[in-house]
Design a binder for these strands. Structure first.
Length: 399
RNA sequence: GGGUCGGUGCCCGAGCGGCUAAAGGGGAUGGACUGUAAAUCCAUUGGCUAGCGCCUACGGUGGUUCGAAUCCACCCCGGCCCA
């Protein structure tokens, strides 16, 4: 594949490339010397569960692998002790080493769904390997390569500063540590979300100072969450996890605002841009149809085609035709008569009695598809009885 | 170190001795309308109780008072200004 083609693939969906000419050069050089590029991605072991937001960058990294390059995954075990201030309104707690190790493990398992895990395509490094040995003098030297003004330029700091939120001095060290990672592993390229732009560019500076050719920085757009407003994140609950079961993945995809579809197609699938334009043009494609396709494509990447088809069918059945899903989770209850509200709590459909009572009073509860209106109505649980709260929570009773 | 302002429910934020489980907004949940989209509208939003009612809650501890998120003392945490 020639350089122009490679470049086109690598550029697709990116937010920015610093700098494109350098990337082209470096690709050409790799081809000439036969030395694959080292594409770095830092992983924060504080948040082990991967969602589609993370896969945007992982997919890009995978493209590098597929083009014959090497992915270098940095586990920020040492940096996690500092906590990346990016996007945080408050200082993060520091983690214990055991916790970090466990998180990293989970991360690998999940990242393996996207990345090529073959040893010759993937190098995994813990940054404590080089950061733990730095002495105070080294750290001061590192710190001297940055100014307070430049630090404060970063939105995250600026925002917090203006808002009057606390900023710990140690947080200033984070970008430096991350930048030093690039020096340590001699990366050719570093990938990250746009929120990592600053951190990644620091790597360029530090490499230059260290006499290395500065890495090319490729940033990917931040994936917007299901709410259509904020960044996809676990804490905001607006995410699709890579371990979500197919039906849930599909259902969540169907719930995104239409306006987000183009973005999702671009960042989460390999669909050509031209086709995406057709799909997201309501005059050419019905939005629901496009979204179904999107949902299938997403599920397919993690569970294969047949699971994707099945999830779509199931969705149609349950939500469009209000039928019961194929698979119902079971809840064991005793056979004694019980008030409806209490039954909901018993089988885990409500957390508290008050919540259950409310659900009933608001007409959201059905037992064997019959609406219950009185929270105190006595129910005699029977095997196979189906209890439903709202549109999406079902349970089959097991007496 | 000095001065000053602040810490309220999932989040933001009002309240500044009783009428306060605590205004308002956001979010979330349930309902209507739909394409589990958006927009809109209605309702709910500490726990226990069939209900009367009881318990827990306004940074922490102790106090004043018939009664405290509200007053006082000390402590913890944070912002800003000065040094």
């Amino acid at each position: 594949m020639d350089i122009a083609e490679q470049l086109a693939i690598l550029k697709r969906g990116t937010a920015e490339v610093f700098r494109e000419e350098e990337l082209a050069e470096r690709l050409a050089q790799a081809r000439k010397t036969g030395r694959p590029l080292r594409a770095k991605l830092g992983m924060d072991p504080t948040a082990p569960d991967i969602h589609l937001g993370h896969t945007v960058v992982l997919r890009k990294l995978r493209q590098f692998q597929d083009l014959g390059h090497k992915a270098v995954l940095i586990i920020g075990d040492y940096t996690a002790r500092v906590g990346d201030p990016t996007g945080q309104n408050t200082t993060r707690p520091m983690l214990s080493p055991e916790q970090i190790k466990q998180n990293a493990q989970t991360y690998f398992e999940q990242a393996g769904k996207i990345l090529d895990m073959a040893p010759e395509k993937l190098e995994i490094r813990f940054n404590s390997e080089w950061l733990a040995d730095l002495r105070l003098a080294d750290i001061i030297k590192l710190a001297a390569s940055m100014t307070v003004a430049r630090m404060l330029e970063r939105d995250t700091f600026e925002l917090r500063y203006k808002k009057g939120d606390p900023i710990g001095i140690h947080e200033f060290l984070y970008p430096l540590m991350q930048g030093y990672d690039s020096v340590a592993i001699q990366s050719d390229v570093e990938l990250g979300g746009t929120d990592q732009t600053f951190n990644n560019l620091v790597g360029r500076d530090l490499q230059r100072i260290a006499g290395q050719p500065p890495q090319i920085v490729i940033t990917m757009p931040i994936l917007v969450g299901l709410d259509g407003k904020e960044k996809m994140s676990k804490s905001k609950g607006n995410y699709i996890g890579v371990t979500d079961p197919p039906s849930e993945m599909f259902g969540k995809t169907m719930s995104i605002p239409d306006s987000l579809m183009e973005n999702y197609f671009t960042l989460l699938t390999d669909m050509p841009a031209e086709r995406i334009r057709e799909l997201t043009n309501p005059a050419k494609t019905h939005p629901k149809e496009a979204k179904v396709l999107l949902g299938k494509l997403i599920v397919e990447q993690f569970y294969g085609r047949s699971a994707a088809e099945q999830a779509a069918e199931e969705f149609e059945k349950v939500f469009a035709q209000s039928q019961l899903p194929d698979q119902l989770s079971e809840a064991a209850v005793s056979a004694a008569p019980i008030a409806a509200a209490k039954l909901l709590v018993e089988c885990g459909l409500a957390e508290t009695g008050g919540q259950a009572k409310r659900a009933v009073l608001q007409g959201g509860v059905r037992i064997n598809n019959e609406k219950i209106t009185d929270p105190n109505q006595q129910i005699i649980p029977q095997n196979g009885m189906v209890v439903q709260v709202g549109k999406r929570k079902f349970v089959r009773l097991k007496v």
